[in-house]
């Protein structure tokens, strides 16, 4: 599968995704869909299909049904449980991973779509012994409580800081608007991300 620009769905990817899941039933005639995909070649499924994911710099081979999301592939097949499953429909950002440099909701991308792309999860961003600047700032400013939303926020913030190295408070508020926290850690988070953008948490 060729590397696609941007993030998220292509029309082709979308058709392939829904084509072999039960949600397509009744919406699109299966026969018509099959021929549409066949015309483009590269049919996945039904049933499990072998794929190779490029995750955190490693090639990982696994078998998934085409209906499996990238999030479920990471969590349930590769035991990469840093990205969390919360809303499971692209609202809360707890499942955020970086795909080809951009933050993506991994609950809203199919695993088969992620083939040929560079996927970075929270596990590939830093470790407790070697945290990146965002992670250090999250600890310093206590931008976490229960911590369940934290991996998604840290991942989104890492991508944000790389793209906006001198972000203001207002830019941080806008840039992290795609993630939600229930414990209410936003006050520390704003300070943390502004600090990380300045490279200020190296201490």
């Amino acid at each position: 599968m060729s590397k696609q620009p941007g993030s998220g769905f292509s029309r082709r990817g979308f058709l392939k995704g829904v084509g072999i899941t039960s949600v397509a039933g009744g919406l699109i005639s299966p026969a018509g869909l099959t021929s549409a995909i066949a015309a483009e070649g590269d049919v996945k499924g039904p049933g499990e299909t072998p794929i190779t994911l490029d995750v955190n710099g490693q090639k990982r081979k696994l078998n998934v049904e085409p209906r499996v999301t990238l999030l479920d592939a990471l969590r349930n097949r590769l035991d990469l449980t840093g990205p969390k499953k919360v809303c499971d429909r692209g609202t809360c950002g707890a499942c955020t991973v970086i795909v080809d440099g951009k933050p993506v909701y991994s609950c809203s991308m199919l695993a088969v779509e992620a083939e040929g792309r560079e996927v970075t999860t929270i596990e590939g961003i830093g470790t407790p012994q070697r945290m990146n600047e965002v992670q250090r700032a999250f600890v310093k400013h206590d931008a976490q409580q229960c911590g369940f939303c934290t991996p998604g926020f840290v991942t989104a913030a890492t991508a944000f800081v790389r793209a906006n190295p001198k972000a203001s408070i207002e830019q941080v508020r806008a840039g992290l608007g795609g993630n939600l926290c229930r414990c209410g850690t936003y006050a520390g988070m704003i300070l943390a991300v502004v600090d990380a953008a300045k490279g200020g948490s190296n201490a």
Partner: peptide, 13 residues
């Protein structure tokens, strides 16, 4: 600082 802050911030928790 929170004792388990690094574990949470790195997704290892």
């Amino acid at each position: 600082d929170r004792a388990d802050g690094p574990a949470k911030a790195t997704g290892t928790a």
